[in-house]
Simulated assay, not measured.
Amino acid sequence: MRKAYCIIILCLFVAVTFAQNVAIINGKPISNKEFMWFYKKNHGGNANVSYKDLETYLNQYINFKLKVLDAKEMGLDADTAYLSEVKNYETSLAAQKRIAKSSAAYQMIMNEYKEAALMFNVSEIKIWNKSKDDQDKIESEWIEVLRKKYPIKINQNELKKLAKL
């Protein structure tokens, strides 16, 4: 009986944890807060959006995260040029004194910069250096390989909650 209670509690905990995330890529969650922060940032602060628009943006965001994951797997996050670039950006951001280093916004801005730099670096290696003529095809094939390689779970219910229908 005790095991049954433990299993039920564990299942509820996992369900609640998953419910607060819009997706999980390779075991790493994308929280509602992170996703909506990026969405609003890239859409002029507009949070009043349809489910279809959020779903489309989530798939673009997943593609971005997959590229970052691939860059990390290639060790690009340990590259000295990348680390120097991130350090310079962090110094510049701190010099602006607009956002406290301890704030969640600061952490999201730094994370966005780090991931964008990685995505740029891996895209340069995987796409831009390979072909000047057919970049869209190469990128589509790369995304397809990444989607097969890394498990993705999208929480449709949570995405629907975020949409202002």
Rank of each mutant, 00 (worst) to 15 (best):
N129R: 12
K137F: 11
I138V: 11
A71K: 01
T91D: 15
A100H: 08
G75V: 04
D53F: 01
Y57Q: 03
A117S: 12
A71M: 03
E112D: 14
Q107A: 14
L159Y: 05
K153H: 10
L162S: 04
K161A: 08
E158H: 02
G44N: 11
K40F: 01
A163V: 02
L10Y: 09
S123Y: 09
I127Y: 07
I9M: 11
K114F: 08
Y150R: 10
L83G: 03
R147I: 07
L69A: 07
E144W: 04
D133M: 11
S123M: 10
S92E: 13
K65W: 02
D133W: 09
G27N: 12
K33I: 01
A117R: 07
L159A: 08
N21G: 03
K164T: 13
R2H: 12
K164R: 10
I125E: 12
L83D: 06
I9L: 15
N48M: 05
K65C: 05
Q107P: 00
Y150D: 09
L54M: 06
E112K: 13
N121V: 01
N63G: 15
R98M: 13
K132R: 08
T91N: 15
Y51E: 07
A94L: 11
S92R: 10
L76G: 02
A19P: 00
V145K: 14
A95C: 07
L93Q: 13
N157T: 08
F64C: 01
W37V: 02
A116M: 08
A104W: 01
V122W: 00
F64T: 01
A105L: 08
K137N: 13
A81C: 00
A47C: 04
E139V: 00
E144A: 14
K132I: 05
S131F: 07
E141F: 06
S31V: 04
K161Y: 11
Q96Y: 08
K161S: 08
I8C: 04
I9A: 15
V22Y: 06
K87D: 15
E34D: 09
M108Q: 11
L162P: 05
D134E: 15
N129E: 13
K149L: 11
Y150T: 08
A78D: 13
A116N: 11
N111P: 00
L66F: 09
D134I: 14
W37P: 00
E90K: 12
I25H: 02
S50C: 03
K72S: 02
G44W: 07
K126C: 07
V86T: 10
S92K: 10
Q96C: 07
L76S: 01
S31D: 06
W128A: 12
I24N: 09
K101G: 12
G45K: 04
I99L: 14
L54Q: 01
D133Q: 15
M36S: 03
K40P: 03
N121W: 05
L118C: 06
Y61W: 06
V22W: 02
V68H: 01
E112W: 13
E73L: 03
A47M: 02
Q135K: 10
A81M: 06
Y113T: 09
K148A: 14
G27S: 13
K52A: 07
Y106M: 06
I30R: 05
N21H: 12
E158W: 00
K101M: 06
K65E: 08
S103C: 04
K97M: 08
